[in-house]
Design a protein around this nucleic acid. Structure first.
Length: 978
DNA sequence: AAGAAGTCGTT
DNA sequence: GACGTACGACTTCTTG
């Protein structure tokens, strides 16, 4: 915390604390699960309160102090405003029970606390602060209640917790001006108009801080604003006029009383004696860790010169420490381990090696290199047997992660451009090394590479794929690490999305975490950064590395418990390696073709727009659902058919097409709808083409997408920046865009290789339904074959309608499709859909049983599992809300099927990459679109590459049915389709 | 500038 | 009263 202590006045420094608001904030900021005694008593509010107070006292060193509390029973405010704090009164029992404990603790620590019946803590605070000021004290008010802002002036500062409890904002007059654009004394005027959700005080609807401030500055104060309410136009003006009474009332309620008779003098607020025994007794009762106790006592004692070490002699600490004495203990009370690693420095290759020698685990017995990826892939050689393991989890698990180190790199990675900033190496003994990317000379790179190659078997990384890119930028290659906390976190909880490392730590370790400042995101050119900035960054990156270390112990346990180690090491990590390669290489596009398409789509969209505008009689924004609603349903008087989630009338294609058909008698509307539909389509295509063009890296004319490996809850990949997994394919016009994807220089063709009906084949395997298995083994047209079974007619007699109905039914199964949905999709009656479904299940009884069992198992266990042990949890299955439950059931039905398909494709990619490398081919995997691989083919390699890729995919796993892969080769992606 | 809502592209 | 999974991206509109 930076030192903001101003020159203290002669009289001293007074700290006034809003006990309730602070306890309240602490309670909600800290997860109660991780702050509970063994007897089940919550302690999070007490702990947060005590540590924050200790911090503030240590940092500000006040001479006098008082804590104010609210008293049970109403105050004068409730009489004016019955709903006042209506929401807050319902404070959870878990919090209320902690308030007396806090008061006991304060007493033991020699701190005065004050309650005044009929008034709030706020009024006590206002009074104390005023008293202090009058007597010449510098005053600090620690409060999480913004009403306190009105007290601020040159001598009174409010310490206000930011979004993260514990980073306190020093609210000075200037800080209030900066944030709210009004003076502190005007703040209550502003708050009266805005309202206060936390206190259940309604403001003027639609008016926030911004508008309130604007008006106050225009008219001077609240009365000025209300006096001129007539002059304020728009909805907000109207709302203001409608709520003048409420606002006046709010203003009365939020004024703090500053002249209560509390019966205390400043002398009473001096620090008393700390009753160490009593305090420690309370801490013990609360089961605070030893470190917490010391920290709290030390904080409070700053001001009275108390030495914590004298009073708290205690039995020996835990015996599981590492040999080298003073090193931080990795296993200590995790919620308060923020001990910064010891930061070491090296500036040449030799000292780097020495550092590694004395701090990192010993080199592995066999030197590793990127070849390990091949060893890993080697384990996948031959068919992987489905039931259901890609490795021996026991054996892998036996490799303990005790002796590990963390490699953490920081930098930017985007669309094929990668820049390493800093690199941190953190050892288990608490020593950390920070190396600036731009300080790496060739000798250091060589040392570093050697260090990495020989120690990757003990290295933990957070995000292997990203690290491959960053290190690649520095000329370093990165073999498989032993563990990846990002991937592990994803396997443990695939639907949790951590935005960053800090978020993941906060989530998995249940601790409050300081958010990394974003300021370092390259806003300043490097040379403009001061030395201290870089230094700050050094400790920053070590802190991140420390987080990775902390995550490792937690996640390792969870992964072992779930037996997902082989999933992580044999599928996910090698997949990262393959993806990194694909991202670096990118996919070549023919920009001339893209430009052509763009011009064409633009022209068509413009044309359609002209017609639409003409028929509408106004220049409606065709991309604004809101404006379209007005034109269609108000002006033209068409009948809306479908509502959106929020209750407005939908204007999506289905509706527009429906309206189009129904409006044959209304040429104006009909023309408009036709033009609108054409505009929708062409404009969308235009956008897609445009975004592709913008994504082309000028360095190589290629598009480098980023595959997200930890986003899709089912285990699939996703593609961003740009998304290359949703390039149009359904109709001819859109499909044209695929012709812009071409082989790059040195390559002669593209190979498209995709699985046919993987998901259905997985269902056949998992359900063991003999009829379905036979259908696949027959080698006949699958859907036709199934239709002939379902309708009990010869294959030759199956009509195209029957075939497509059965096809839709088959796919619908895996999605938990309702008969209603099926009927809609096939445009048949719900009754007919129902008949189809019964016939289908009569034919494939075991499929039905399997799907049922999937859901009931999930309900029982709480999760589903893929063939390779990828889990997904479904809390929604126990929801009392039907809609939520139904959705969860459908997802639970789909997850193991879609997820197993994803597992299989990942294995296939690893194998294909391995096979291509082994054969010494230049051809390379370019894109993955869930069940399709697009491969860039080098001259003369078409046949061999096709065979290797097809084979890798077909033999990724062996199921009860064969995996069928169809391939095609062409001069562009569209021509490669088959 | 950020977020919500609506729409639509893929598998 | 809704009614197929899983995503990413674009635009508008509102709010700040």
């Amino acid at each position: 915390m930076e030192d903001r202590t101003r020159t203290d006045s002669q009289e001293g420094k007074l700290l006034v604390v809003d006990g309730h608001s602070l306890a309240f904030r602490a309670y909600f900021a800290l997860p109660v699960e991780s702050f509970t005694t063994s007897t089940g008593h919550p302690t999070n509010a007490v702990w947060g309160f005590a540590t924050m107070l200790a911090d503030v006292i240590a940092a500000e060193k006040p001479t006098h102090m008082g804590v104010a509390f609210d008293v049970k029973g109403g105050t004068f405010r409730n009489k004016m405003l019955p709903q006042y704090k209506g929401t807050r009164e319902a404070a959870p029992e878990d919090l209320l029970s902690q308030l007396p404990v806090i008061q006991r603790m304060l007493k033991a620590l020699g701190i005065v606390y004050i309650e005044k019946p009929g008034f709030e803590g706020d009024d006590v605070i206002g009074t104390l602060a005023t008293m202090g000021e009058k007597q010449g004290f510098k005053t600090l008010v620690l409060s999480g209640d913004r009403d306190a802002f009105q007290l601020i002036d040159d001598d009174i500062t409010v310490l206000y917790p930011g979004h993260h409890f514990k980073d306190l904002k020093h609210m000075t007059p200037q800080a209030v001006m900066d944030k709210y654009k009004v003076r502190p004394d005007q703040y209550p005027d502003l708050a009266a108009m805005r309202g206060e959700t936390a206190d259940n005080i309604p403001g003027v609807p639609g008016v926030g801080d911004g508008f309130a401030a604007k008006w106050i500055n225009q008219y001077g104060d609240l009365e000025g604003v209300l006096g001129h309410a007539d002059e304020i136009g728009g909805k907000k003006g109207e709302a203001l006029r409608d709520n003048m009474e409420q606002v006046r009332l709010n203003r009365k309620v939020n004024a703090l009383v500053r002249d209560l008779d509390l019966g205390v003098t400043m002398d009473d607020l001096k620090f008393g004696t700390i009753h160490t025994d009593e305090a420690e007794g309370i801490f013990k009762e609360l089961q605070f860790g030893e470190r917490s106790q010391r920290k709290i006592l030390k904080g409070f004692s700053t001001v009275v010169g108390f030495d914590p070490s004298s009073g708290s002699g205690r039995g020996g600490s835990r015996a599981d420490k590492k040999a080298d004495g003073g090193a931080p203990d990795a296993d200590q009370d995790e919620r308060e381990v923020f001990t910064q690693p010891i930061e070491d420095r090296v500036d040449d290759a030799r000292s780097l090696e020495e550092w590694a020698g004395s701090h990192l685990p010993d080199p592995d017995d066999s030197a590793r290199s990127t070849r390990e990826i091949n060893e890993q892939a080697g384990r996948l050689s031959g068919d992987v047997d489905t039931r259901h393991s890609v490795g021996d989890d026991e054996a892998l698990t036996a490799r303990s992660l005790d002796d590990i180190w963390v490699l953490y790199a920081d930098g930017t990675a985007r669309q094929g451009d990668y820049a390493l900033r800093d690199l941190a190496l953190l050892s288990r003994d608490g020593h950390g090394l920070v190396i600036q990317g731009d300080s790496l000379d060739p000798a250091m790179v060589r040392s570093l590479q050697h260090l990495i190659d020989t120690r990757m078997g003990t290295c933990v990384i957070h995000g292997y794929k990203e690290h491959i890119h960053l290190l690649e930028n520095a000329g370093l290659s990165l073999p498989l690490p032993v563990f990846d906390t990002k991937l592990a976190g994803y396997l443990v909880q695939p639907d949790f999305h951590a935005d960053d490392l800090e978020h993941a730590v906060a989530h998995f370790l249940d601790i409050p975490v300081r958010k990394a400042p974003v300021a370092s995101q390259g806003r300043l050119p490097l040379d403009a950064e001061s030395a201290s900035d870089r230094e700050e960054e050094g400790s920053q990156i070590l802190r991140q590395a420390r987080y990775v270390m902390m995550l490792t112990s937690k996640l390792e346990g969870l992964i072992q418990e779930r037996r997902q180690f082989s999933l992580l090491r044999t599928i996910e990590l090698p997949t990262s390696y393959v993806l990194a390669g694909m991202e670096s290489e990118g996919a070549k596009v023919d920009d001339a073709r893209l430009k052509n398409m763009h011009d064409q789509f633009s022209a068509e969209a413009r044309q359609a727009q002209e017609i639409a505008w003409d028929r509408a009689g106004e220049r409606v924004n065709l991309q604004s659902p809101k404006q379209l609603q007005k034109v269609l349903f108000d002006d033209m008087g068409l009948q809306p058919t479908h509502k959106t989630k929020t209750g407005s009338y939908s204007t999506n294609v289905a509706v527009l097409q429906d309206l189009y058909i129904k409006s044959v008698d209304n040429p104006r509307a009909n023309d408009f709808l036709g033009a609108l539909l054409r505009h929708r389509e062409t404009n969308k295509l235009k956008q897609i083409v445009q975004s592709l063009r913008e994504a082309v890296n000028p360095r190589d004319g290629r598009i480098h997408t980023t595959y997200e490996q930890t986003v899709a809850a089912t285990g699939r990949l996703s593609s961003v920046d740009p998304n290359l997994q949703n390039i149009p394919n359904r109709n001819a016009t859109g499909r044209e865009i695929r012709s812009a994807f071409v082989p790059g220089e040195g390559y002669e063709a593209l190979l498209s290789s995709d699985y046919s009906q993987v998901e259905l084949r997985i269902m056949a395997d998992l359900s063991g339904d003999q009829a379905l298995i036979d259908a696949f083994k027959s080698g006949a047209d699958f859907h036709r074959y199934v239709a002939s079974l379902v309708y009990d007619i010869p294959m030759d007699d199956v009509t195209s309608d029957q075939r497509s109905h059965v096809k839709a039914m088959s796919y619908g199964l895996a999605y938990g499709l309702s008969t209603y949905g099926l009927a809609q999709q096939l445009k048949i009656s719900p009754a007919a859909a129902d008949v189809l479904k019964s016939k289908y299940f009569a034919t494939f009884g075991k499929v039905h049983d399997y799907l049922e069992s999937l859901v009931s198992d999930a309900r029982e266990k709480g999760y589903t599992e893929t063939m390779f042990g990828r889990r997904r949890y479904f809390p929604g299955l126990r929801s009392t809300r039907r809609q939520v439950r139904d959705a969860a059931e459908r997802a639970a039905l789909n997850a193991p099927i879609q997820g197993s398909a994803a597992d299989i494709m990942k294995i296939a990619m690893i194998k294909a990459r391995h096979a291509l490398d082994q054969a010494g081919l230049k051809s390379r995997i370019s894109l993955q679109i869930h069940d399709e691989l697009l491969v860039e083919i080098a001259p003369g390699e078409a046949d061999r590459a096709t065979r290797l890729v097809k084979d890798s995919m077909e033999h990724a796993v062996s199921l009860a049915v064969p995996l069928d892969v169809s391939t095609g080769i062409g001069a562009d992606w569209q021509l490669a389709a088959h």
